[in-house]
Design a protein around this nucleic acid. Sequence first.
DNA 1: GCCACTGATTTAAGCGCTTAAATCCGGGAC
DNA 2: GTCCCGGATTTAAGCGCTTAAATCAGTGGC
Lengths: 348, 348
Amino acid sequence: MPANVKKTNPSMQDVARFAGVSIATVSNVINRPEKVSAATTEQVRAAIAELGFVRNDAARSLATGTTSSIGMVLADLDNSLFVDMAHGAQQGADAVGLRLLIGNAACDMTRQDDYLRLFDEARVGGVLLSPMEDSLAGIERMRSHGRPMVLLNFEQSGADCCTVLVDNEEAGYVAARHLVETGRTRIGFVAGRDYYQPVHARRLGVQRAVRETGGVELEEIGTDGLGFEDGLAVAHDLAGRAADRRPDGIVAVTDEIANGIAEGLHATSAVQVPGDIAVVGCEDNRSARSGPVALTAVQLEGAAMGQAAAELLLEEMKTPAGEHRHRTVMIRPGLVVRASTAVPAPQA
Amino acid sequence: MPANVKKTNPSMQDVARFAGVSIATVSNVINRPEKVSAATTEQVRAAIAELGFVRNDAARSLATGTTSSIGMVLADLDNSLFVDMAHGAQQGADAVGLRLLIGNAACDMTRQDDYLRLFDEARVGGVLLSPMEDSLAGIERMRSHGRPMVLLNFEQSGADCCTVLVDNEEAGYVAARHLVETGRTRIGFVAGRDYYQPVHARRLGVQRAVRETGGVELEEIGTDGLGFEDGLAVAHDLAGRAADRRPDGIVAVTDEIANGIAEGLHATSAVQVPGDIAVVGCEDNRSARSGPVALTAVQLEGAAMGQAAAELLLEEMKTPAGEHRHRTVMIRPGLVVRASTAVPAPQA
DNA sequence: GCCACTGATTTAAGCGCTTAAATCCGGGAC
DNA sequence: GTCCCGGATTTAAGCGCTTAAATCAGTGGC
């Protein structure tokens, strides 16, 4: 219908005029229909449809001082963990009729900051942030403006916010425990440097699992980084050892490392996964490079984190300022068992 | 500094009072600093910092009738193609200083509609939409409100919008061509039903490639659906045939099917991939189930699509209403060669 | 000393919506 | 016939910002 295209966005005023009522009545039809007689409602509805009226949200939120949306700034949408968080948050928001707006920082600190500022200026009801390293400045800015905010997956020291974390100590524990329970007795923990927070926690968890169990040894195998290449290097080392001098089960601190190890061992074909060595990863990241063997991994439960975060945020949003007590929620990781830790078949 | 938390969001009025100037001067300091003397600017800046003032975007956009953001509604963030599109769009938006807000429909039509409505009410500058089947109603609503909009990856018949599509005919052609060039002579095209738009186009492309080449046969192998299971079924069929009665190269219309075929053949181990049969997928979807062999696949170039879409949108946004001519941009797919189409080694 | 002129600042009129308070109007109740 | 009442509708006062137009100094020219 290109013939009767509306030139300009009609306002409530236009609708009111068209329907022969006052602007307040139009507003009432939209917001409190029970206050308006049936006949009038009908007329106004017709006018709205006829004119193609769309309520101007800027004016609305200016007048009411509220918004119906919350913002979420994600560190990296390429990483499926964050996509899962978005899902969870969306679910949480949906439940109370809030709309979730997503900004993807794409690992760019400037962009993270831009989005925070945008949401701040847009006066969203609150913000969910999966911060990148050292986001304190941006966080404090939001806080000082009194905007509710929840941090996801990162413990920003000094930040005065509710936080949702995955229990990384538990993640390490679960991974190691799984190996022990499937009969492995020489556990290897492959870990990058400790100064990346979660690595440290996972190490602790693995140690605890080993300590709790009799007759199991633990070897810690260091790497330079946390990537696929580092896993390959470890595989190379392992393949060169005598059979009785290498672990029979490995907890890799990331999926990338785990895949690197599996790939490296697969290539030499001297050592079988899971026959000779079982491998567990620690992130269950869909986007992790897919290896030659389906990887058993600890699930970081992104959706659960997102949902918990949304709930914390809503809680803070509806608590009168000043009365809110920040909380930290720990999400317990799960375990997804796949081929890389299958119990060796008898005849193998 | 919990001691001097600001109770309420300070307004420009507050800043003006604090700095001892008029509200217009504050506005000028923010928007046209060149109009204000250095000394005044300094005072106002100080007041802004001291009070923690944040410009209220609702008021601003109400007063100016403009926004600095565009919206993007994605069918499914779990699918990496859409994530790529988001990246591309973001890049396009960044280039002109617009902010990109993302809504994830998560395959839910209602949610897609909610987001469209939200963006409409928020008066965003324009909307990018990767529509789900039959989104005509929502699209028309936006269009009739005069909101610029670009469709991605789906040709909605009857929609009066710019559109960015991947050239699916070309995708089929590229895939088949690759097989032929690596020496395969009996091509199989594994395809679900034709009524899913891209399937049809890809079929045409494969046919063209075969037609263009002498000495190559084409066999079309139908499936019920487009998933992993369907691929498994095809593998089963193939494995049961005599060696000279089966294709030596397969174009699967989706990655899922391709992975199913590879997995199924791998399991029987009677037929080798790529030794006996090379397999090409058609989406290069990172989230596709990872198979036993790294899959050669046609790249749908999500990022390029996103960027092209953003550019079309910006073009429409700055063209005076009525003068805009809609365009459709076809993105040419690329090819990512991996193990599943490696040329058989001589000794194998 | 008066004036036109320039640059800095202020005034004031909205932008489109919400909402408390005021107004209207048609029935009973008396 | 007069009052009062309650539901329906309208009036009017903002919400916080932008911006064109008006005001207000100083300056230098004469």
